[in-house]
């Protein structure tokens, strides 16, 4: 690889290599405050390579590969190289991480206790976590929550927050511009802009927290709160985990413990401000 960067996000270390300079330059700028791997050896390698022999120069098109890859992944435009690198790192985690039970969820922390939010793309979990991270909570991650198999604590994976479409303006209004990445317009998921987590989130990326509340957020509906039964929670979390089956019995033990111990609510909200108010209210109630 002509251009490369090594970095640590939470407990995981990555080496990202690219045929092109531009995606790595963008990563270096946005991940400037992140530490390098302690021993210099990365858990995962991500490679951004030309999709074909001439695609380095001619309509440059990126193919994401690495230790773990998807055979049918579509090539991406070089203009979206930063997104490709982020997707590559997510892919390595989703397919290769075995040290924790990996939940596709955002999480934030306050007073040593973690709020975990899971839902499909567009549910608002990422935006809500980012907003809470700007309003007195510690952002632990917008994509993966790492559940410790022995202690049941949630550990952070505070990568760049991937803001999509309307969420971009919402967060840009309350975040310093230096923490906002370039606008990636017209990606497969619409417009995307990355947000660099604040100093607290990055500085405490090794610090876990006891899970205290699980939310299933749903953006775009009238405000509502519903209890969710433990059977449904378990089922939805197995669907939200990419390594539950691979972990075997330790994964079963960790997930059942989480479901039995952590109260769960489904919340609907029409706007970010109302969601934050709802979360603060539920947090007080479960405290």
């Amino acid at each position: 690889m002509n251009h490369a960067l090594s970095l640590r996000i939470g407990p995981a270390t990555f080496r990202i290599g690219s045929t092109w300079r531009r995606p790595v330059e963008a990563l270096v700028a946005l991940y400037a405050d992140y530490p390098a791997p302690v021993d210099g050896v990365a858990d995962f390698t991500v490679r951004l390579e030309p999709a074909g022999p001439f695609r380095r120069w001619l309509r440059p098109s990126i193919f994401i590969t690495g230790d773990h890859g998807l055979a049918d992944a579509a090539p991406m435009s070089l203009a979206h190289g930063l997104l490709a690198a982020e997707m590559g790192m997510n892919l390595q985690m989703a397919l290769g991480w075995r040290r924790h039970l990996l939940l596709h969820a955002s999480s934030v922390e306050k007073d040593g206790r973690a709020l975990v939010m899971t839902g499909e793309s567009g549910s608002g979990k990422s935006t809500l976590a980012a907003q809470l991270g700007e309003r007195g909570w510690r952002l632990m991650g917008d994509e993966f929550a790492l559940l410790d198999l022995d202690t049941g604590a949630v550990f952070p994976f505070p990568r760049l927050v991937s803001l999509k479409n309307r969420a971009i303006d919402v967060l840009a209004a309350e975040t310093p511009q230096r923490r906002m990445g370039p606008l990636l317009a017209g990606t497969a998921k619409g417009d995307i802009r990355h947000l660099v987590p604040n100093r607290d989130a990055i500085g405490r990326m090794g610090e876990g927290a006891k899970p205290a509340l699980l939310l299933f957020p749903r953006f775009g509906h009238a405000a509502d709160v519903r209890a969710v039964g433990q059977g449904e929670v378990f089922m939805r979390l197995t669907q939200a985990s990419t390594n539950y089956v691979a972990l075997g019995e330790p994964g079963f033990a960790a997930l059942t413990r989480f479901v039995a111990d952590v109260p769960a609510r489904a919340i609907d909200f029409p706007s970010g401000d109302e969601a934050v108010a709802l979360v603060e209210r539920l947090w007080k109630e479960c405290g």
């Binding site: 039964g229 075997g248 019995e249 079963f252």
Partner: peptide, 22 residues
Amino acid sequence: ITSCVLEDMVLLYHRPSGQTHM
């Protein structure tokens, strides 16, 4: 089999197959 009761449901983890049954 190892099991876990969640409200009115019981989860069974079958060690030989690695499958979870509700």
